[in-house]
Design a protein around this nucleic acid. Structure first.
Lengths: 356, 356
DNA sequence: CTGTTAGCGCATTCAG
DNA sequence: CTGAATGCGCTAACAG
């Protein structure tokens, strides 16, 4: 049931040399071999379709050429780009990715153990969630296993390699954009800021919103704050509440900062059925970007997560650590969101209508 | 830089027994050991925090407890559920997934080689794309490596384990649904049916549409067929063309079968700016489902891919093969799409409007 | 019932 | 410059 595995010994035998000679030639080691034997070995390897067994190799080299990637998937379309970009830098270097999807801390711990048993050379943690407990990561650190965490809440205090994105800035820039457009009443629909699970990003984005307003001397009214819980449904309900509270179209805020894209979908829905047009009646800026965002009605102005960048940098950090004997100093990197200005904020014109 | 690895020998030494005794006890092998020694070994292992090295184990067992999952990602939100569900069945059995994202055939071949070098026990291929060349899979088959392919075009003729979903049926059911609602003019916006890359699914879904119409004795007019190329933008443009061709609202078809969800996003957009309401003026059914589909405006009636099911079944097939010495007969499984009736087809009422 | 022995496939000293 | 010997950590016969 297994392929008749051809080993280094088979090659040696066929080339009429010793095993170690084959190994040296194939690994390009710096002891000179006669061109004659080199040729014979190369040819034998070719003829036999020899491929070194990576497992056996890792046994002696004490490195496997694998990295474990552990993610707590809540927002799939985000982490997938992290995986891809990490893979894009790891693969050319001969590394392969072990993947584990871990819904909670306990299964994360389990996954780490399983991958450590398989002797991965390092880890990348991608958490798009509220998971915060990082005590077990401290143990990893103590064992001097290289790893980097991406977007993990409350790790700033730890001495880990970490890549975060600036949620505060996202809220701030989104709101600034609206302010610059002349809006003065900018309501917000936020993610889960209290209770559990409680998302750090919801808190940070909200702070950014507040700061931008404060800088303009605008007093934020509690009436402008609605909780949408980061879900489509939550965004929908928050908006209905907003509409009800306003009572009339003229009393609506003129702009809206919606803390994530999921909620925006619901917001758009509620607004539509209330006859409130975006951006004519109310402008909207959100956070997050999917392949659909640019094609919705209206297309959404958003701040896009630097997910691909994060994965790429994480992989590069690992690679650098792999190449070095001693421990490299830990890196703490903060990435900015990328503003994508489209229709929902009113900056861009809508397509010309088609009349019959 | 590596954790001071504790080996089975350390445990043996501490428990004052031989290495093999430790191995037997820890692996629950069926030779009886004195309760005394068993206790000592267990305790020593515990105290030393011993964890067997999976790499070393796989060397001798000739199986690694890993499966390679190779996907050509085009539609991310689809395959991600395949991965997750496969993982859900593999993990409890002690298997770990190696992941590789391969944009084209060449890198797929490369990835297979890399994973074979790492001695994976089997493969799952997930292709949501037009990739069709499967010659290298035939080699895999010849080497008796267990694998199953999901949604790979033109593999029917091969003797592989394969899981497909019934694109024809999707088109058929979608159209039937529209027909049952009383529509008689059902236009379609299709995926790339000719040229390269050319998607089998586009062709199949289109056939289903045609068949449903034919069964009702409805002659399909070429005027009802538009190519949207499976993209948002394509859907948008196809719809503009449809509108232009109709010339007036009254001449529009009353229903639309859109062959995938991406295109639907664009269709909705074009229709919206033309003042054509969905579903009041035109009903719409599509194929594909994301977390957003149910919350869009209007929410989309779709046929959802059986992606999770596919991943689960694939994993189960592998597991069964792993447990058996001889080759199991290959399985060819056809899965149905799942109809999700929502607003866009007109079956469900829209939410009550909120008036000021 | 337990310990000794022999590899799994490979890379790496170290003599010759 | 080359090949024989050693061991990575573990399991599986095989004796005792």
């Amino acid at each position: 049931m297994r392929r008749k595995t051809v080993t280094i010994r088979d090659v040696a035998q066929r080339a009429q040399v010793s095993v170690s000679t084959v190994s040296q030639i194939l690994n390009g080691n710096h002891s000179y071999v006669s061109a004659d034997k080199r040729e014979r070995v190369l040819q034998a390897a070719e003829e036999l379709q020899y491929r070194p067994n990576a497992i056996a190799r890792s046994m002696v080299k004490q490195r496997t050429g694998t990295v474990g990637m552990i993610f707590t998937s809540v927002v799939d379309h985000l982490f997938i780009h992290t995986i891809k970009s990490a893979q894009a830098v790891l693969k050319p270097e001969g590394y392969t990715i072990f993947l584990a999807d871990t819904p909670d801390i306990e299964s994360e711990i389990q996954a780490i153990a399983a991958l450590q048993d398989r002797q991965v050379d390092g880890f990348i943690f991608v958490s798009m969630t509220s998971v915060a407990d990082s005590a077990h990561l401290q143990r990893l650190k103590a064992e001097e296993v290289p790893f980097v965490v991406i977007n993990r809440p409350r790790v700033q205090a730890y001495d880990f390699n970490q890549i975060q994105w600036n949620d505060w800035e996202a809220g701030y820039l989104a709101t600034r954009h609206l302010l610059n457009l002349g809006h003065t009443s900018v309501a917000t629909i936020c993610g889960p800021r209290q209770g559990l699970p409680h998302w750090q990003s919801a808190f940070d984005r909200h702070e950014g919103w507040q700061q931008a307003l404060a800088e303009q001397g605008i007093m934020v009214s509690p009436d402008w704050i609605f909780d949408g819980n980061y879900t489509c449904q939550g965004g929908y309900e928050a908006t209905r509440q907003l509409l009800q509270q306003a009572g009339s179209k003229s009393k609506l805020p003129t702009a809206l900062f919606v803390a994530n894209e999921e909620m925006s979908i619901g917001v758009l829905r509620a607004l539509h059925y209330a006859g409130v047009r975006v951006p004519q009646d109310i402008a909207l800026v959100s956070v997050g970007d999917t392949p659909f965002t640019a094609h919705m009605t209206p297309s959404l102005t958003t701040l896009a997560h630097p997910v691909a960048e994060a994965g790429q940098i994480a992989a590069q950090i690992l690679l650098k650590q792999f190449a070095t004997k001693e421990l490299l100093p830990t890196q703490k990197i903060m990435l900015s969101f990328d503003m994508r200005v489209r229709e929902s904020c009113g900056s861009n014109p809508e397509p010309s209508e088609i009349f019959f």
